[in-house]
Amino acid sequence: MVLSIVLSGLAIGCVYALIGIAYNVMYSASRVFSFTAGTLGMIGGVLGSLFILRMGLPVWAGFILALVGGALLGVVTEIVAVRPVLKSLDQHLYVLSTLALALIVQQFTAIEWSTDAQPFPRIFNIERNSFDQQYWLPMIACVVVIVGLELLYRRTLVGHAFRAIAEDNYAARALGLPERNLRMASYALAGVIGALAGFASGQMLLAFFANAPLLTFYGFVPVALGGMGNNRGAVVAGLVLGLFQQAANFLVGGIFASVAVFTVFILVLLARPDGLAGASAGRRV
């Protein structure tokens, strides 16, 4: 029993962490939190089910197409909902534009796909056991993304450029870096990460349009608690959130688990608006 709580807690925690990382990747490139983060996860699950179960494509093809779909949605987010309002960040119009886009995608999915949760295919044709693929797939996805991002950010020039626009957008532009293309690439990357989270957790969360708002909320919790733009904080906070939620689920029942998570989230945020790890970057003079 304890084992299954821990496994499912870690698995769902990895999904929250991945959505949190998707938030962070978009935030680093544009200083914008996007309501589409959870939608990216939802779309990964729905596209996976669509391509593999409904259209009968091989698993690998469905996987790649789902990620491509996520990347496309990321780019659309940047072009439609972020770029037009970047000039007036202080008016917070991005909150409304990304919310609108998230709702559009979500409602479209509900109507054209299904308003009910649809099954998601088994990825590997192996027998179920207590440590099933529905648990370890999200964990592997999370590790792959963390290692991949680390390599990208530390070892490649493009990754350095991503970090440069995150640290000082103005200096990066003055240096002649292609800031707009890098921002689009960041959104595409966030789309891939979100879709990967949705695909890897498909067997757990199913292909369901209503996963979008849930992931948008629960994926933001690690960002808020771990400190915005801080991927390590997001992973730790995501795992803690997953474990806490599953434990509360078992101990006090599902509905009050959500209430507990929400209450803790609000209380922590009110006490520490910059998150638990919240060392905000020093003022630049």
């Binding site: 439609v80 909902a81 037009p84 309002v85 119009l93 409304l96 534009s97 919310l99 609108a100 886009l101 709702l103 559009i104 409602q107 479209f108 109507i111």
Partner: peptide, 12 residues
Amino acid sequence: FLYAVLLLAIVL
């Protein structure tokens, strides 16, 4: 869906 489209149009 239409409300959301309307919202996006209004904002932009």
